[in-house]
Amino acid sequence: MTTRVITIVGFAFLTAVLIALEVIGRRRTSRIPTVGEWLGYLMRPRVGRALILLGWWWLGWHYFAR
């Protein structure tokens, strides 16, 4: 197994874990918050809202404009 494959497997594994956390978080009895819940929590203060929206815009710029 090459290091390139190991790198890709690492990203795939982390992505799978993040999806699993979201799925588990949507269970009614789960203590794990969903993405929407912790993002909403971070976006309660005005500065948090600005930073999260800036991060969203940066992602678009990073992947679609360059």
Partner: peptide
């Protein structure tokens, strides 16, 4: 938005 988050879950 939730007022608090579960620290373990986070």
């Amino acid at each position: 938005a939730p007022d608090k988050l579960d620290i373990t879950g986070v």
